[in-house]
Design a binder for these strands. Structure first.
Length: 329
DNA sequence: AAGACTACCAACCGCATACCG
DNA sequence: GCGGTATGCGGTTGGTAGTCT
């Protein structure tokens, strides 16, 4: 059963807005506000437009505080980091960028930033390969070799290329292309350091929370990684440490990007690779509960999960992952 | 000069959720 | 609790300007 249409599409104007229409809408909202009723607004404002169209035009274009174009490198970083962490939840991402709209951020990502991220992804892989070849010989086998796929090799084993737990739980259908996946997996590190300890934990958390239950997923991992996932399980949900409980978080997986977190916390850069041991935990310890809830709300679509996370004991450091590759392969 | 191709972005569509009676 | 409606959101489309051949 489909929804009833919001208006009679045959009797309202569609397509690009004229300057006169813009002015009508702008002046009406300036004088009267939206009144909380977009359906009635076009009629009152003398516009032959669908209310939905008016709302979109106002939110995406006419609002006085809107910025168009001219994205800074810092904004790029924030977008990439958040995309890496929470997926294509553009409204949340846009809310962290004053003056930007979800539509604008989405277009910017799809047309420019994604390509930039993919290009840098390939570049990083090449550098990793060169580094590996220089230090281990080109035909090496071992863990590192297995964990660092050759350029152009299939990427499907990179844990962070799974849809993030949050986006996986989202009702929206995610149809990420291989390019999206590559850009997503790399976005968080786009301007940053080599893979960090936290990214290893992110990957474990993504596996533990996303893929249909921690217990089932963890069982498929090698022993060392099972321990990783288990540690994450405790960290993510200290009050409910079972796999089944984690599964019940419905998308509340802890996937916090190491780039964006410092900005949320209002601190400088964390030392790469040492977030939990020296940077992350003490900072969280000092946060007021309300501040933690605000932070958590950025990542947990489920309010209860956000509250639980914010109230949890964050100061318990995790054991270092002992060289676990961030790709978990 | 002109057609083909590409990039960009405003606008639309339809689903999910919140809200209200 | 339930059904109807409005709003929010993310994916997609279509028009246009710029670039290439």
């Amino acid at each position: 059963m489909g929804r009833a249409p919001c208006c009679d599409k045959t009797s309202v104007k569609r397509g690009p807005w004229s300057p006169e229409e813009d002015e009508l809408l702008r002046s009406y909202v300036h004088n009267h506000g939206t009144g909380g009723n977009w359906i009635a607004l076009p009629h009152k404002a003398g516009l032959n437009r669908c209310g939905k169209s008016c709302r979109l035009r106002w939110l995406n274009y006419l609002r006085p505080d809107i910025k168009h174009g001219g994205y800074t490198e810092q904004e790029d970083r924030i977008i990439c980091s958040l995309y890496n962490s929470i997926g294509s939840r553009w409204s949340i991402i846009a809310s962290k960028l004053p003056g930007r709209t979800d539509n604008d951020v989405k277009n910017y990502w799809n047309t420019k930033l994604k390509k930039k991220a993919i290009a840098m992804h390939h570049h990083q892989h090449q550098q990793q390969q060169e580094y590996y070849n220089n230090h281990h010989g080109s035909g090496g086998r071992g863990r590192r070799g297995a964990a660092t796929p050759a350029p152009g090799a299939p990427q499907s084993q990179c844990a962070s290329m799974h849809p993030s737990p949050a986006s996986a739980a989202s009702s929206a259908v995610t149809t990420a292309s291989a390019g999206d996946a590559a850009a997503c997996s790399f976005g968080g590190a786009m301007y940053s350091s080599p893979p960090t300890t936290l990214q290893a934990h992110q990957a474990a958390a993504a596996l533990a929370c996303y893929d249909g239950g921690a217990a089932a997923t963890a069982a498929t991992l090698p022993p060392q990684q099972q321990q990783q996932a288990s540690s994450l399980t405790e960290f993510v949900s200290p009050a409910t440490p079972t796999g089944a409980a984690i599964n019940g978080w419905a998308g509340g997986g802890l996937v916090i990007d190491d780039m964006f977190l410092p900005e949320l916390l209002g601190v400088g850069d964390f030392p790469p690779g040492d977030l939990f041991a020296t940077g992350f935990a003490p900072l969280l310890q000092d946060r007021a509960p309300s501040s933690l809830q605000e932070l958590a709300a950025c990542y947990f679509p489920n309010a209860q999960a956000a509250e639980m996370w914010a109230a949890a004991d964050h100061v318990k450091p995790l054991p270092p992952p002992a060289g676990l590759c961030h790709s978990l392969t």
